[in-house]
């Protein structure tokens, strides 16, 4: 008791200057704002470079001595024009969209039902089913694509969007189910019990009560699935062979890179246009995306 009384004044004195200096704006500038700016610069620079290159005419692109490479002096739409009208970019975009939307819808439906069964119907062994689905998330596409390729071939799905629509859920369902279980957990049981008392069937409860309350979870899972499907590469590379059926990431890498001379302008235009839809889509739902990424289900 007495010891604490003696020590207290000394500590307050020792602490106060440190606190104040920590809060001082100059120190904060060096220790917080400057590093954050560096991080943002490094993380964004490739996108800036992509954009700048897209709008550069070839004369500027390959001549750093006379042009400042960080800026475009005479912007041109030639690269974008070439991409849109001289390649099958529109059909690649359509394929990607089709596959991403179908795979997302399929995974969402399957995941909602599975998550509802695991979290709300609570049968014996439900936790094990949940665990098995979680473990399925840890099986990466890189070890599955060879056997899946032979399966896709035998099923006659090779080179069709259906092959991708059916295989993407293998990595989407585990994630979505896991996320939705978390959301369902946060919905009070009492609501469902009330509905049961009022004579609702279980499906009515799922449709009328649980799902509307889990809408944020559904949006998060949907966004995440959509961007994951948009990004998917190895299955699309292995299962699709004809040019017009390819998805954007695969097509840009395999169709635009030919021979030894790379058309950097066109490549960057392809990358930019391939990234924009998903970036725009994402910008509308950042918070949902973040909450799904972190698995945090705080509303």
């Amino acid at each position: 008791m007495s010891e604490a009384a003696i020590e207290r004044p000394r500590k307050v004195k020792a602490d106060l200057p440190e606190q104040l200096s920590w809060q001082s704006s100059r120190r904060r500038l060096v220790t917080v704002y400057l590093p954050v700016l560096c991080f943002v610069f490094v993380l964004l620079f490739p996108f800036y470079w992509m954009t700048v290159t897209t709008f550069k005419p070839n004369a500027e692109l390959y001549n750093y001595a006379e042009n400042n490479p960080f800026w475009v002096r005479s912007p041109t739409l030639a690269n974008i024009n070439k991409l849109l009208f001289e390649t099958s970019y529109p059909s690649w975009l359509f394929n990607t969209m089709l596959v991403a939307v179908c795979a997302t819808v399929l995974s969402l439906v399957a995941s909602v039902l599975a998550a509802y069964a695991i979290q709300r119907l609570r049968f014996r062994g439900s936790t094990y089913v949940g665990l098995a689905i979680y473990i399925a998330y840890l099986v990466p596409p890189s070890i599955l694509f060879i056997p899946l390729a032979t399966m896709v071939f035998q099923l006659g799905l090779f080179d069709s969007p259906m092959a991708l629509i059916l295989t993407y859920p293998t990595f989407l369902i585990p994630f979505c189910t896991w996320l939705l279980i978390g959301y369902f957990k946060s919905i009070p049981y009492e609501l469902e019990e009330c509905a049961l008392m009022d004579g609702a069937t279980r499906l009515q409860i799922l449709w009328r009560i649980t799902l509307p309350l889990a809408v944020p979870g559904l949006i998060s899972a949907g966004i995440f699935s959509f961007t994951l499907s948009w990004n998917e590469f190895i299955y699309a590379l292995a299962f699709i062979s004809s040019s017009e059926n390819k998805t954007v990431p695969v097509a840009i890498l395999t169709e635009l890179v030919q021979g030894d001379v790379y058309q950097w302008g066109a490549l960057m235009a392809g990358s930019l246009l391939g990234s924009l839809p998903v970036a725009i889509f994402y910008s509308f739902f950042v918070d949902y995306y973040v909450s799904s990424l972190t698995g945090a289900v705080k509303e």
Binding site: F39, V40, L43, L44, P46, F47, W49, M50, T227, W230, N231, F233, V248, P249, V250, I252, L253, L267, M268, G270, S271, G274, S275, V278, A279, Y282, S283, V286, Y289, V290, L293
Partner: peptide, 18 residues
């Protein structure tokens, strides 16, 4: 936060080309 997540959102292959 939105800006920082951007590299994660954009398809890896496309940023890899950059």
């Amino acid at each position: 936060r939105a800006i920082i997540l951007l590299p994660w959102i954009v398809p890896t292959v496309l940023s890899a080309i950059a």
